[in-house]
Design a protein around this nucleic acid. Sequence first.
DNA 1: GTGAAAACCATACCGCCGGTACAGTAAATT
DNA 2: AATTTACTGTACCGGCGGTATGGTTTTCAC
Lengths: 219, 219
Amino acid sequence: MRKGAETRERILEIAEASVLAKGFGATSIEEVIAEAGITKSGFFYHFKDKNELARALMLRYVEENDRIFDDVFHRGRQLSDDPLQSFLITLKLLAELMGDLPNGHPGCLIATFTYQERLFDRSVREIAASAVRSWNGRFRDALNEIASVYPAHKDMDLDDVAIMFSCVIDGGIIMSRGLGDPRVLERQILAFRSFVKMLFAPAAPDIMLPPAHTAVAAE
Amino acid sequence: MRKGAETRERILEIAEASVLAKGFGATSIEEVIAEAGITKSGFFYHFKDKNELARALMLRYVEENDRIFDDVFHRGRQLSDDPLQSFLITLKLLAELMGDLPNGHPGCLIATFTYQERLFDRSVREIAASAVRSWNGRFRDALNEIASVYPAHKDMDLDDVAIMFSCVIDGGIIMSRGLGDPRVLERQILAFRSFVKMLFAPAAPDIMLPPAHTAVAAE
DNA sequence: GTGAAAACCATACCGCCGGTACAGTAAATT
DNA sequence: AATTTACTGTACCGGCGGTATGGTTTTCAC
């Protein structure tokens, strides 16, 4: 029972790496099982077909990302009571997290999957879409909280700003990979962070530095 | 001779749509030739293997995008002498272009390819990387021109802002697709446009409205 | 109009892969 | 000790990427 879960996890790990490097269609089950050290029968014991592998990969990815966001938002809120400062800290932590990855970000499963939508059934696409909506909702909530305290720039829709963060992350991953420079993603997140700062502190950004005990992570 | 070019073009058209819907690895040559109404021999007359198809797809995509950027930047410069206004017009035109696509943006080949890098040889990846660098350079040049006239916000690196635009486009395409809402991309470009406005006109954006004869496209 | 090059078609074949089917087995759990 | 879990082994099917080879039609240059 526990051994089965371990094998399953190993399969998912190997398959995810392959999917992010070659795409789902080009990910061969035979390669995966060779690397995992099991037989084809063993694979189909855990996943009845390739589509169920896709669903499992997606669920796993969404859950792990949820955990990361939970953590980083939680720590942001711990380090400051001010919604703006807390969000800026969260963004800084995220940027650090991305910069600390030795080989750069491994890739966003949601991005690959949306570029291969025809390969998956509705359920897989729904998992991805609702996860994206949930993350965008998180960002928007954080922005709304800030906007209830700080005056926001008028001609910016906060919904769009929230979605833009998702765009910057996914786009940043693509740019990092395509340009072969892992630090692009980190810089992009920090650039978005400056954008948020500017959005809520257009006139005199120096005024709203965080209190001393939260200043370390915020700047 | 001319007929050959037509067939080749038809193959590329069909293959591109398939690649953007299923990925390169899952794009079957047999499906492509069936839709194109040719035989397998006919296909391999034009492309000696699948990798050469990939290279041709990439070259075609880069050239078309170059044309689009040429056009939209040229028209932006035509409509205003002011570098900021001209860039804002360019962004507006781009947003309109994206919004007018009936089924949403078909997808960015560069994005798919970077998520399937292991399938292509170095030459294909180099074409993609240098194209991205060239487009980022265009944006950065436009921003530098603006910065030579308008004071820019200090803690924003213009290189990062330029790359961010690429991120917003690629991310916007993914979000549009994933959320099933084609208008997200247009809104994201316009949001980035507001960001640029804010970046160069933080204190009093109303002051620098364009002269009357360029006002239509700019706002 | 003719010859040559270009643009294909037809057929046959190889090996890999996704997937199915089914029979068997070692280990963990109850 | 019985049962479930977690696999292995073997055999097979059809589809696909790719190669090879030889033939046929269309187009263009002269």
